[in-house]
Design a binder for these strands. Structure first.
Lengths: 233, 233
DNA sequence: GACAACCCTCGAACACTGTGCGAGTGGATT
DNA sequence: AATCCACTCGCACAGTGTTCGAGGGTTGTC
């Protein structure tokens, strides 16, 4: 409970990349590669150092600690999200495209799910997306704090929907799990929770990937409808 | 990438608590205490063992590994969420009360934010809540898979909204951070992202705790409105 | 050319972590 | 009395993030 101060990579000057040697960008790029290949648990300072044929502790010259490194790779994720031009397509279409883009980016970088909402998103890429979202909602007709509320609501939905998707996908991806055991557990559970049983039986028929997509669309339309009603008449 | 199989504490028989010695319940209770006092990083098997005046590895008789322990404490959190009786108050009121309850429970157990969506929620308490939510939305008029979509949408919003709240609160809680530095960073940023500046200036005036509450209400009403529109006429 | 100032690297060490193994203890059952 | 079983736990292993301080290499200055 010591009085740690708020800190973020983005609030201090980066080390100059003067020399032809390693740069912060190179390190971040290698880190992202490592994350994509091995997941979050596969990223350790020693392994990252090895990948760059460097000593583990060399990295600490470019980055104050691992959290800073994570902030950097985190912003890299935000950089992959594309915000459509609101002036061309209208805010609802723009919001919808953006939402699907964000979902897709997260799904293609499963490790990012563990960073979202936990790390401050103050990097240039994150700020760019936030800025564009704000423009989007203002163009829709929101004013004042309502604009921020709308942003928060939409992103909460997107992240809240996608993060558990990843956990699910990680568990059931290439890995088989004992169907019999699962079934019997479900049945056992269903006695006590009859509504759940109905749910299990219905989703069992469908392709889970499709179900998740449809669920996302369903929720997205709902959220956008709800936001639209908040617009001043 | 080895073929790990899906597993969960809830899918196997618990160890009998036959003896008068330590029980699984006692361990979970101590773990929750430790988490409340020290946060997620304060929970290690050794420290938990010490708190119970036991060797660290003794716990492994009651629990297969730390993840299982986390699943158990996770379900404890779900147990604190109260689902109002839909038949009495109507589904919108019930959903609203539930949402605020879930938010409050998470905020009062900040460590739970790191577990949500990452761990399977198959414990009895989580199933109970899910079951009640399902009844709630069915009573509202949803049918088939739409019921599940509605649940997913609402919980996504609640979690997606509350989890970042915790990260924020943790950073700015008792800890002061350099206001001047922050300001200058914001100003610097604002040149590139004009919309963000407006946002910063507005939220600066208000009490952040109130802002977050209002934002939650705003989003909640929006989501419920949107869901209501999905009901079959 | 000599010397100092810097940028940068990295090995050793510290204090931790989760967990497998196998020996050991005490009480109940046969 | 012997056997079994529930239960405890010290040791050890393979890792983790991070600090420190000693060095090497390049650059700039007298």
């Amino acid at each position: 409970m010591a009085g740690k101060t708020f800190s973020s990579v983005w609030l201090r000057e980066p080390r100059k990349a003067a020399s032809p040697g390693r740069t912060r960008e190179e390190i971040v790029r290698a880190a992202v590669e490592l994350l994509n290949e091995e997941g979050l648990s596969g990223l350790s300072m020693r392994r990252l150092g090895a990948k760059l044929s460097a000593g583990a502790t060399s990295l600490y010259w470019y980055v104050a600690n691992k959290d800073e490194l994570l902030e950097l790779v985190y912003d890299e994720v935000w950089g992959e999200m594309t915000v459509p031009d609101t002036d061309e397509v209208g805010w609802r279409e723009a919001a919808s495209v953006l939402a699907h883009s964000m979902r897709q980016v997260i799904l293609s970088h499963p490790w990012s799910a563990d960073l979202i909402g936990r790390l401050p998103a103050l990097g240039p890429n994150a700020l760019h997306v936030a800025n564009e979202m704000r423009r989007m909602f203002k163009q829709a007709g929101f004013t004042g704090l309502d604009t921020d509320y709308a942003i928060a609501t939409l992103t909460a939905f997107i992240f809240g929907m996608t993060i558990p998707e990843i956990a699910w996908a990680a568990k059931s991806g290439t890995e088989r799990f004992d169907v019999e055991q699962m079934k019997s557990a479900v049945i056992q559970v269903s006695e006590r929770y009859p509504h759940m049983r109905e749910s299990f039986e219905m989703t069992e028929m469908e392709d889970p990937r499709v179900v998740r997509e449809v669920a996302f669309d369903f929720g997205l339309v709902s959220v956008l409808d709800g936001l639209e009603r908040r617009l001043p008449t």
